[in-house]
């Protein structure tokens, strides 16, 4: 402390600021220290374990090998980008040349159909999970509110929900695939069938936790608040807006977090099973590939899948904080 005093006196800095900065540093290092220790221990155990596991594709990848693959995967992505740009450049030149010869020529632009890189697959999976989840939310939350408000509807739908909830969405996958290929016939589809299949599978598993939690939240609103609404003769719409929604926000978001967690897990499995584009397909392709680097690349995908799952959950949590009236929760 005396050195600080001398230092602050000499530099003419506010001493309380220095001490508060130091205590902040202390707290931050405590909050950082334990996770850092945990991760380090994990990495050490992983590399020791990896070293002693021999598979038919060589040694199980340790942290260093996986880290190396991250770099390689990113470079492959960049290389693919360069190729794609070159392709479009050539196409533009060709079209321009033909237009010069024949001004009535209708320009055809073809999309580049190169190999989908790791980064592309991440992007595909993210778009799929978000679309499927949003579609589910748009259906499940209003339904849940309606079920929570009407005991009759709840009694009618509850058995259906309870039976469908425990079904693994992967069991739906063949049905979804057949129905989509029967119904989704368009000569020039906006989005691919495989995207629709994955999306609907995600939707089917996201529906139930959101619906159940929303209806639970709505049905358990403090009866005094409902009485206030009755005395005021609020219209059903105002009742939902002013009373039902704010009161059930915590449970609605609990349902959303549960749903999104399940959705992300299911999507990867569905992509593996159905060979639909996405991270699941990446994992499966690498597995089939069976090169000496495959396991490290799959491990890299596992880490990314975990990180994205974590970030998705945090995202919903942040959204809840933003929406909720009670900022302490």
């Amino acid at each position: 402390m005396t050195t600080i005093t001398r230092l602050t006196d000499r530099l003419m800095i506010d001493k309380s600021k220095v001490t508060s900065f130091l205590s902040w540093m202390g707290q931050a290092s405590k909050a950082l220290l334990l996770p850092v220790i945990g991760i380090t221990v994990f990495l050490v155990i992983w590399s020791i374990a990896a070293n002693s596991i021999n598979t038919s594709l060589g040694k199980f990848p340790g942290p260093v090998a996986v880290a190396g693959q991250f770099g390689a995967l990113y470079q492959e992505h960049n290389a693919e980008r360069v190729k794609a740009e070159a392709f479009y450049e050539r196409q533009d030149k060709r079209n321009a040349a033909r237009l010069e010869v024949d001004p009535s020529y209708v320009v055809k632009i073809r999309a580049y159909t190169g190999k989908e890189t790791f980064v592309d697959q991440i992007f595909t999976s993210l778009v799929t999970v978000m679309s499927g989840f949003l579609l589910a939310a748009v259906i499940a939350i209003p339904m849940g509110i309606w079920m929570g408000l009407s005991p009759t509807l709840n009694a009618a739908l509850n058995p259906i929900v309870q039976v469908f909830k425990p079904v693994s969405p992967l069991a739906w996958l063949p049905l979804v695939t057949m129905v989509v290929s029967a119904l989704y016939v368009s000569p020039d589809p906006m989005v691919s069938k495989s995207f629709i299949n994955s999306l609907l599978t995600v939707t089917l598993c996201s529906l139930w936790p959101m619906m159940i939690n929303t209806s639970l939240g709505v049905a358990n609103i403090d009866s005094d608040l409902v009485n206030v609404s009755r005395v005021l003769r609020l219209s059903p719409l105002t009742h939902v807006q002013k009373i039902v929604l704010p009161a059930s926000i915590p449970l609605i978001f609990t349902g959303m977090r549960l749903s999104l967690g399940v959705a992300w897990m299911v999507l990867i499995a569905a992509e593996m099973l159905a060979q639909n584009p996405g991270l699941g397909k990446f994992v499966w392709d690498e597995f089939q590939n069976g090169s000496s680097e495959s396991l490290a690349r799959i491990m890299a995908a596992v880490v990314v899948i975990g990180l994205i799952g974590f970030l998705l959950d945090r995202g919903v949590l942040a959204l809840q904080r933003w929406f909720s009236w009670d900022k302490t929760k």
Partner: peptide, 11 residues
């Protein structure tokens, strides 16, 4: 009605 436990909307 004034309820026993105020029943104000907390939000």
């Amino acid at each position: 009605v004034v309820f026993q436990n105020h029943s104000l909307l907390p939000w």
